[in-house]
Design a protein around this nucleic acid. Sequence first.
DNA 1: GCATTAATTCAAGATTTGTTGTAGTATTGA
DNA 2: TCAATACTACAACAAATCTTGAATTAATGC
Lengths: 123, 123
Amino acid sequence: MQQTTAIHMLESLASGIRLDIYRLLVKHISAGLVAGDIAQQLELPATNLSFHLKNMTQAGLLSVTQQGRYQRYRANLPQMLALIGYLTEECCGGEASACLDFSSLMYCAGQQCDTPAQTISET
Amino acid sequence: MQQTTAIHMLESLASGIRLDIYRLLVKHISAGLVAGDIAQQLELPATNLSFHLKNMTQAGLLSVTQQGRYQRYRANLPQMLALIGYLTEECCGGEASACLDFSSLMYCAGQQCDTPAQTISET
DNA sequence: GCATTAATTCAAGATTTGTTGTAGTATTGA
DNA sequence: TCAATACTACAACAAATCTTGAATTAATGC
């Protein structure tokens, strides 16, 4: 990963609204959400949401597919994994796995999930 | 992790200089580096480096220990892991490990490494 | 064709951020 | 005590970012 790519991703995520958008889309990793749904769930004006969605898409955080007049957004998890790899590169002199401990974390990565995430329960 | 904490970490990392600092300190995960060494390796004026180190420390990305008149900085990897957990929370409806694939990544996490990283070879 | 809905683009103002130079604090060693 | 070193704090200007409202494009259904 290039440095500029990482910066764009981090800049994009470093905003309360965009962080909410990203985390919401991670919860709906397989199906994604259309812009209107996101606007409704996060109570954002369409104009402002559109600004942030464009920002995140250009940063590579999200992918978009058009469905008629709807735009369906999804979190780009492989790209997030690449960012994490960039951030932790060359740790322990290249022997990264030497001090790895992810057991207590709740992740979801690799390719898209095959198990659809339909249960929405954000407080 | 609170949202404000995550934002501060991401804001802090979303800068070319601070990203370089962080990655450099990840390479020296166990021993860390004093401010002067960082300034020398990244060719930064002391004033500017100090500004960024303070920013990163306040964001929780780095830890500092005083050694005489030197300040030794280290990357706070557990905090980075917490951030990653926050970003990927509730993926796949809570069944995060269902679609996990970290095999191709180079990580270093958990507590500090026990194997010192002395080999410095940034191009 | 025409009205409606979904989403984006554009311009403008307020806020925030980054860099630099100067000054200041604190530790070291003679 | 004095000078040198390591690092930090402050002020100020230039640059980038966020939000909002009005206008625009595109797809749908009658």
